[in-house]
Design a protein around this nucleic acid. Structure first.
Lengths: 137, 137
DNA sequence: TTACATTTTTGTAATGATTACAAATTTATA
DNA sequence: TATAAATTTGTAATCATTACAAAAATGTAA
């Protein structure tokens, strides 16, 4: 839990209880949660927690570079603590999101056709391993 | 205009007037429009046009593979008729979207770690050429 | 052409994620 | 302890998108 606090302090964010709990959730669960799914898990444990706090906190974390966000198949924002380079695979059947290794590294902080690239996202879409097996049955 | 009609008929979509005008707009304007921006342009020319028709039509086109869609910086859906492989660059300052050449081709219809990849999107974010120049001034 | 069925479009209301904002609470500071 | 600042809450607003039923347009058969 001190590790969580350190992350916040190092980024100049005061480590309030709610912020620590939300970041702790993100660090421990690499399941691409949405604001709503975080709320559903944490609200029972923290009865006073409001959804606005979730949104505020996530927005703060993204702006400070602690987490990243990306749009899912239905436009809902998902959040990600993971920072090793990876790509997201969206399964059209089960709607789950998988992390896959990034097979190259040719964008970050480069200049491409005169444009300065600060971040990049690679999104794959298709049928996941499990759903392919289910189709076969 | 016959070309527009052919595209629709070939995909099994009956070429109604509104559908043709919307597809014509997409074919002629490679400016990544949103449903709303299409509406703002076409509504004055077609006074009876409703926004729901825009949404319905775009959804039909996407499902038939005539156009593709992607989420912009603010989650709004943008539409694209272009089918040569390309990546999208989002400028954080001017919010414009640029098409850049795709520097490799290693996803489409491949199987990666057991998952079948049907489509992919590469999104870059940063400061565009023009905005970099403005900063220098 | 007319009558009927089907398709397309419209317009309004609903949905759902996100944000704005002011009040309430908590925390830090003097 | 008193006061200021930061954080959180809760409700209401926003905005893109969708649902849905009515209206309009189109196609078809007699």
């Amino acid at each position: 839990m001190d590790k969580i606090k350190d992350i916040l302090v190092n980024k100049g964010i005061s480590p309030s209880y709610h912020r620590m709990k939300i970041l702790e959730y993100l660090v421990k669960n690499n399941n691409h949660p949405t604001a709503d799914s975080i709320y559903r898990v944490l609200a029972p444990q923290i009865p006073t927690l409001s959804k606005t706090t979730i949104y505020n906190t996530l927005k703060t974390f993204v702006s400070k570079g602690i987490i990243s966000s990306f749009a899912g198949l239905n436009q809902e924002l998902h959040y990600d603590y993971k920072f090793e380079p990876h790509v997201h695979f969206f399964c059209r059947k089960c709607q789950r999101i998988f992390d896959l290794a990034e097979p190259f590294d040719c964008f970050k902080d480069k200049s491409i056709e005169g444009h300065l690239v600060l971040s990049h996202q690679i999104n794959l879409e298709g049928i996941c391993h499990n759903c392919l097996q289910d189709e076969g049955e």
